[in-house]
Design a protein around this nucleic acid. Structure first.
Length: 581
RNA sequence: CGGGGAGUAGCGCAGUUGGAAGCGCACUUGAUUUGGGAUCAAGGGGUCAGGAGUUCAAGUCUCCUCUCCCCGACCA
């Protein structure tokens, strides 16, 4: 490719709507353009990167017996009604009508479509286990996009789906995919990848892991233990949270006029927030009301709470729902409530003593509230003691008790064990040896291709621009021909360009009549790992200069040696991203 | 959906009290330059987001609408 003709301009200024470095660099270097919120065009440079990533993913999926297929993006709503997700997924699922007024959706994932296929294609246990995958568009109508290519609405995803005789077989295959993912992320050049326990969310199922790039720009919060293997998305993380035990004092009602928030009450009574109890009222999709008690300095992990309650949906309760049980908003606790409300108490409330809690009376709180003694409930049948406090740094690891750390991550891949949720919904029945039917269990496995490209840039760049790992670089080598006015320079550059193309390399030739500085700057910005410089001076000495983008090392190479030297260098670069067998 | 900000040339921006739409970069042509974002000269490029209104006169004032960004809610 000749740079003169490359479709896509480079820009000198950062785009004003870009915040994170990968977004800025991809736009400035001519890889990415925006069409609408979260909707982008990929210019030739980025498309080449995405194709190379896709090819690596394809190789690794094929290596674990995946079979590539392609399923539709536009689907009839009936497909989604079968699994109930037409209703349970709110607005992320884009709905529209076709010309016959038929209701359709743009698929945001393909469990429905693959189950529909499985119903017609899977008949016998002899066909199992099997895995099909695709590299295809998804549309998710995100409430808020961010980070350029990191969080978008329309994106290319590799999604794979496996079918198994039983959970054990699924679990074995799950581990295989896990290892395939590690290989993929190594091959595309990502270094700081953490695998964390995750919430299956709307996908359903029990077990799931997320592959995270560890970066301050990440939008997920990861809790991990430096001493053992514990790593979890904050949404599902648990911890041993230190209490503040002391000798019990006498329960006492005190006046707290107009002090409704934890911060106000704590300040007014001159106690730290961890000496208070927070009461939060939630309601589920069936309008059951829940009182949730937690220590005042802690947040409720709603993902965990949802799971404990067993409802995919949770909202804050309305004021009249709260009052129905005799609670006074702003001054609420369990004491003095009518029966019928379900109560969840976080263990932090039990491990501390002499707390400030609401008195269910306008303008009053208790001091020296101790749950075991003072909960005030006649019967505890509707009370559950659980762990659902949001984990914070320095809480203790649930596995080993050491202090936990917190970091941020970009989710670049995920794997789920789905059980038989979808095969049952689609009535996918398979015959076993005895001729009896069973529902296969499923796994599903995703990797965001574009997000992966963005993540690599996020991790691999410097002040001058992108530094691509050669395994996914749009070109392997860029030839920079300085001073176009000298005919020898361009002809020499073109000659070596043709030779290296013949040798099978992806080459970009900067054939523009620009000054040296412009060319060097653009080359660094675009980020191709190996640069070959051709100039008048070098031609006179019968030399080329090779510069490595990753470390700025420069060497002079004899003209006759250039082909073998480039071959060696390219091979050496690839070695960095090779997976040990 | 709530809060905040923005929309003027391809990109980044200025535009005062309402009085002839500008600057830098990029682009085209010519000349001089050519190892780290050159210089000079001459050019091309505008639905000032859109609509309605006020006014002799609107990029500028009023109202409405749209779009984009950030924080939050939400989310695989």
């Amino acid at each position: 490719m000749y740079l003169q003709k490359l479709f896509g301009q480079r820009l000198k200024d950062d785009p004003k709507d870009a915040e994170i470095v990968s977004h800025k660099l991809l736009v400035r270097a001519g890889y990415l353009r925006q069409n609408a919120t979260g909707i982008y065009s990929y210019l030739p440079l980025l498309q080449r990167v995405l194709l190379k990533i896709s090819e690596i993913v394809r190789e690794e999926m094929d290596a674990i017996d995946g079979q590539e297929i392609l399923m539709p993006l536009a689907q009839p709503k009936e497909m989604w009604e079968k699994t109930g997700r037409y209703q349970t997924i709110a607005q992320e699922l884009l709905r529209f009508k076709d010309r016959w007024d038929k209701e359709m959706v743009l698929a945001m994932t393909h469990e429905e479509a693959v189950s529909y296929l499985a119903k017609s294609e899977l008949i016998s246990y002899r066909q199992l286990p099997c895995m099909v995958y695709q590299i295809q568009l998804k549309f998710r109508d995100e409430p808020r996009c961010r980070g350029g290519i990191i969080r978008v609405r329309e994106f290319t995803m590799k999604d794979g789906y496996s079918f198994h005789r039983d959970e054990k077989c699924l679990d074995n295959y799950y581990k295989k995919v896990y290892r395939a993912y590690e290989r993929i992320f190594h091959r595309v050049g990502l270094k700081k990848v953490l695998v964390v326990q995750a919430d299956p969310g709307m996908m359903g199922g029990r077990i799931s892991h997320e592959f995270m790039l560890d970066t301050p720009n990440g939008e997920d919060t990861i809790v991990y233990c430096p001493e053992c293997d514990y790593k979890a998305n904050k949404e599902v993380a648990t911890a041993q949270i230190d209490g503040h035990p002391e000798d019990l004092k006498e329960l006492c009602k005190v006046e707290t006029p107009d002090k409704k928030t934890i911060a106000d009450v704590a300040a007014y009574l001159k106690v730290p927030e961890y000496k208070t109890v927070k009461a939060v009222f939630y309601a589920d999709d069936k309008n059951n009301v829940y009182l949730v008690l937690i220590r005042g300095d802690r947040g409720v992990n709603e993902t965990r709470l949802r799971k404990l309650i067993g409802s995919g949906f949770l909202r804050f309760a309305e004021e009249d729902e709260i009052k129905r049980f005799g609670a006074v908003p702003g001054y609420a606790s369990s004491r003095g409530l009518k029966t019928g409300i379900k109560i969840f108490v976080d263990r932090t409330v039990l491990s501390s003593n002499n707390l400030v809690a609401g008195a269910n009376e306008q303008g009053y709180h208790y001091i020296n509230f101790n749950w075991q003694r003072d909960h005030g409930l006649e019967e505890l049948s509707d009370v559950r003691i659980e762990d659902f406090a949001e984990v914070e740094e320095n809480d203790r690891c649930p596995m080993c008790g050491e202090k936990l750390k917190v970091t941020r991550g970009i989710e670049i891949g995920n794997i789920f064990q789905l059980g038989d949720k979808y095969t049952r919904a689609y009535d996918v029945r398979v015959l076993d040896e005895a001729g009896k039917t069973f529902y296969p269990v499923m796994g599903c496995y995703g990797i965001g291709i574009g997000r992966l490209a963005g993540s690599v840039v996020e991790e691999s760049h410097d002040d001058n621009g992108i530094i691509w790992p050669i395994s996914i670089s749009p070109f392997e080598v860029e030839i920079i021909a300085l001073n176009q006015k000298n005919k020898d320079v361009l002809s020499e550059a073109t000659k070596i360009y043709n030779q290296l193309k013949e040798d099978g390399f992806d080459i970009l030739l900067d054939d523009r009549e620009e000054s040296a500085g412009v060319k060097f700057a653009d080359a660094d910005l675009i980020g191709i790992p190996i640069q070959i410089i051709v100039s008048e001076k070098l031609i006179a000495e019968k030399k080329f200069e090779i510069k490595l983008r990753s470390n700025n090392n420069r060497v002079l190479i004899d003209s006759k040696e250039i082909r073998t030297q480039v071959a060696t260098l390219v091979e050496r670069e690839y070695l960095k991203y090779k997976v040990e067998e």
